[in-house]
Amino acid sequence: MKQAFWLLISWLLISCDGSKFQNAATQNLSRADKLHYEQYMIQGQQLYNTHCSNCHQADGTGLGQLIPPLAQADYLLNDQSQTFCIIKYGLNDKITVNGIEYEQPMPANEKLTNIEIAQIATYVYNSWGHESGFIPVKRVSQEIDKCQ
């Protein structure tokens, strides 16, 4: 009976919840990971709106040549590891995104935990036409340890 109840709950969650988040890269995830992915997307959006969207804007387009875009940004799409590090530790060097050099420093967010960074990254890498798939906290933890 109990099992049937949980089965029903998870079926409800999978069928009516965030299937809108699914994309080509998440199709082959296990059922459990699909659920995780949807949780990450919802949490990630909230965290993004709190910590990132003031500057990078809700639609990820940035601001002129002052703040780089995230949407369709070559830098971000080419280097996930470095992106995790920048989210956590900020950036004081110049950065070139889509051929434009930006020099405004980005503040660090050292209070963000690895899971929060994974949620933000999952959101950013699967929004605005991006389809990079689920980024589990385990991956972020491994990469964050290697940040310089």
Partner: peptide, 13 residues
């Protein structure tokens, strides 16, 4: 300004 200015400037644009 790390808070509302970039949004304000985007809107003023």
């Amino acid at each position: 300004c790390p808070t509302i200015c970039p949004i304000m400037k985007k809107e003023m644009l």
